[in-house]
């Protein structure tokens, strides 16, 4: 019996086995560069942040192991946690506002473009163009536009007789964050628009036509047919917006500075982390320990919530056909 099995196995099976091994080697070879980059630039820094976060730091010199001491300091020391809470809720505001204004507008634009109105290719490019610009350039450009004295925005407002509206947008705690959110929306709106548009294009035309024959209005078609069927795109955008909102850094850094000027109204977790870990000219000295602890906490928060959100949102997706 044993001999029989053996005789059956060769030589065809050997060739199969060899081919499988080759395939594995080939896969490993192809995966290696990506893995190496991931390891060096993602996992290693993450591991070192966790490593740093459990030590006492005197400026740049590592002191003794203090377990969760840094975390305690970040979360419960009133000197730190009032900044943490303030920054956290600012990030929450950013997320909600971007969901409503940026992604809401993107959805409307996508529905508009999906009907392929005259010149829609031009609009498509026009909406997407800011996305490819560098955030730094956009930050500085809009800082100039919003300048209370020489800026384009207030000059326009004054010229159309809305001089009362020409407030120092970035100088008032009430308007600074809103202005930055709008700048971010202006910068990024093309991206969700494109994703939504692709999702709408994926929906078979027949379904829309069937709904039209069923008597549905354009609004009902959008609500009852297009919206549920673009769920996968919505999942992607919600999760990306969530991650982007809680990692928001460049725009507030360029437009409001490291301390979330004015009066911490534009402070973000990212800015707080940067100040804590690296220090700033006026805000004090670097502390890698609490900085790393803060980074770890931010990571855990984003990771947990985006995982939960992905799970939940994926459950309402429907496969097309």
């Amino acid at each position: 019996m044993a001999q029989l099995t053996k005789s059956i196995k060769t030589p065809f099976d050997n060739a199969v086995v060899r081919r499988r091994q080759m395939r594995k080697l080939w896969l490993a070879f192809l995966l290696f560069p990506a893995m190496a980059i991931l390891l060096t630039f993602v996992f290693l820094p993450m591991a070192s942040a966790i490593w740093y976060s459990v030590y006492e730091w005197d400026g740049l010199v590592r002191g003794e192991f203090i377990g969760l001491g840094n975390f305690q300091e970040v979360l419960f020391d009133p000197r730190n946690n009032k900044f943490l809470i303030n920054a956290f809720f600012n990030n929450v505001k950013v997320f909600i506002a971007l969901m409503v204004f940026q992604n809401g507008l993107a959805l409307i634009l996508a529905l508009f473009l999906a009907r392929e109105p005259k010149g829609y290719r031009f609009y498509q490019i026009a909406f997407f163009l800011p996305v490819i610009l560098s955030t730094v350039i956009i930050g500085f450009q809009w800082k100039l536009f919003l300048n209370p004295i020489f800026g384009l925005v207030n000059t326009l407002l004054r010229n159309v007789g809305l001089g009362d509206w020409a407030v120092p947008w970035l100088g008032l705690p009430e308007t600074a964050l809103g202005a930055m959110i709008l700048v971010n929306a202006w910068h990024w709106v093309g991206f969700p628009t494109l994703v939504f548009l692709a999702a709408i294009h994926r929906i078979p035309k027949d379904l829309i036509e069937a709904a039209r024959l069923d008597g549905a209005s354009e609004w009902m078609i959008a609500r009852d047919i297009i919206w549920p069927l673009m769920a996968p795109a919505v999942t992607i955008i919600v999760v990306l917006t969530f991650i982007g909102s809680f990692n928001w850094f460049e725009i507030p850094y360029i437009m409001g500075g490291l301390e979330g000027s004015p009066s911490y109204s534009t402070d973000m977790l990212g800015l707080l982390f940067y100040r804590t870990a690296f220090g700033s000219v006026s805000a004090g000295n670097s502390d890698f320990g609490t900085g790393s602890a803060l980074a770890v906490l931010i990571f855990i928060f984003i990771f947990t919530f985006s995982t939960i959100a992905t799970r939940y949102l994926t459950s309402r997706e429907v496969e097309l056909s």
Partner: peptide, 9 residues
């Protein structure tokens, strides 16, 4: 419709 065009959701 040829594709039936049933609403998949």
């Amino acid at each position: 419709f040829q594709s039936y065009a049933l609403y998949p959701h």
